[in-house]
Each structure stands twice: as C-alpha cells, then as structure tokens.
C-alpha cells in the first residue's frame, strides 16, 4: 500500500562512525569511540540536559538520540499529542540488555536481579522513553524482523494516517547488538519532498550502509 499523501521531511542515521541528518554529515566519530562513549559524545554535542538519558539502556539511548536529532527545529506541538505515532523496528530486540539482566541472576549465590536493567528488557520501552520526552501519546508499535523491512513500517504508518489515527509518523529502525549499532529514523507528515513509500524509505535506509 502506497499513500502519496504522506511525505518525508527529515531523516536521521546514527551508526558507530557517524551521524547523518538528511544524508549529510552531522557528527563524526573521529576518535573511534566505543558505543557508550560515542552515544555520550552525541548527547553532549546536541546540548540537551536530560539526566534520565544516563539511566537508559544502550538501545534506548540510541533511539532517543536519533529522535532528538530528528525533531530538532521541528515543532510537534502544532499537532495533537494523540496524533503523533511511532513505528519502529529492529532485528535484535533488546538482546544486550537481556544478557545484562541475565548476568545479575546467573549466580544463585549472588542473585541480585537489577530492577533498573529489567525495565529495559523490551524494545518498546525505547518508544516509551521517546514518547515521555516529546509528549507523544499516539499509536505506537515495535516490530522485530530479520532485516529492515520498509513495507512493514511504511504500511503501518500509512494505515494509521488513512484511518485518522495519526497525522504524523516517526518511523524507522533502531538496532543494537554488542558493538554494532544503527539507527534510521524519519518523520512522515503532510509536509516534505520525499514520498512516504517503501521504495523511498529503503533508499534512505541504505544511505548508512
């Protein structure tokens, strides 16, 4: 299903070596920082103050930062908070956080399950963090698929739009597994120059690879 009424106005990529906004370099990992350090560097670079960021797991940090960069200079308040939807996807769910939590309960003699790790053992918690930060109350979904599937995300956002459940969609892919991570987030609304179609979204996604 392709609905040309929705357009993409902005998109953002984050990988281990750079951040792109609309395909153009925004932040480079020139010092080869590891994942934690690079995400912290991005946080500092975009000059936000949100102490909750440091309590998030790595995938939530990644998605949070991508959306922060995406929505910079975008005024979402012109929409009802219920009309902003989020549809994200990945292939590894929250596997790193799952392992981290498992490590707190592996040893019967040292059995201290961590509440703060446990709460992040679902990928839609990332959507919750993004929603809280941006006051978003619309429909949201998180799909776990083998590899990026633009049709799933595009069709879902278009469906929400066509059924009057959303006027804006934040869509994309946020995956984090060990040192390999990537985020691709875009904004779909009535404004923009790029058709919100699977083929166009695939083209944008592949800019990072």
């Amino acid at each position: 299903m392709i609905n040309n009424s929705l357009k993409i106005s902005k998109y953002c990529h984050i990988s281990s070596d750079r951040v792109l906004v609309n395909g153009k370099p925004f932040i480079e990992n020139i010092n080869g920082l590891d994942n934690k350090s690079f995400l912290k560097h991005i946080y500092k670079s975009i000059e936000i103050a949100y102490s909750k960021f440091f309590k998030m797991d790595e995938i939530s940090k990644l998605g949070f930062l991508a959306v922060e960069i995406l929505l910079k200079d975008i005024n979402l308040s012109v929409y009802n908070s219920e009309d902003v939807s989020i549809v994200l996807s990945n292939s590894d769910s929250t596997i790193d956080t799952d392992y981290n939590h498992q490590n707190t309960i592996n040893d019967y003699e040292n059995f201290f399950p961590s509440p703060s790790i446990f709460v992040y053992t679902l990928p839609n918690i990332m959507i919750g963090e993004i929603s809280i930060r941006n006051g978003i109350k619309g429909e949201n979904s998180f799909f776990i698929v083998e590899k990026f599937n633009a049709e799933i995300v595009v069709d879902h956002i278009n469906s929400l739009f066509l059924t009057g459940k959303a006027e804006v969609g934040i869509g994309g892919w946020v995956n984090f597994h060990q040192e390999k991570y990537e985020a691709f987030i875009y904004l779909a609304s009535k404004n923009g120059n790029i058709n919100h179609s699977a083929s166009e979204v695939n083209k944008l996604f592949n800019l990072i690879t």
């Binding site: 102490s51 309590k55 201290f112 399950p113 961590s114 509440p115 703060s116 709460v119």
Partner: peptide, 15 residues
C-alpha cells in the same frame, strides 16, 4: 530526582 525504580535499586544495593 530519583524515581520508583531507583528506590528498588537502592533496596538491592543494601542487600
């Protein structure tokens, strides 16, 4: 600015 999850984490820390 601690929250309810922090409270649980403090209980774990004490134990």
């Amino acid at each position: 600015g601690l929250d309810s999850i922090d409270a649980l984490e403090l209980i774990v820390l004490l134990e």
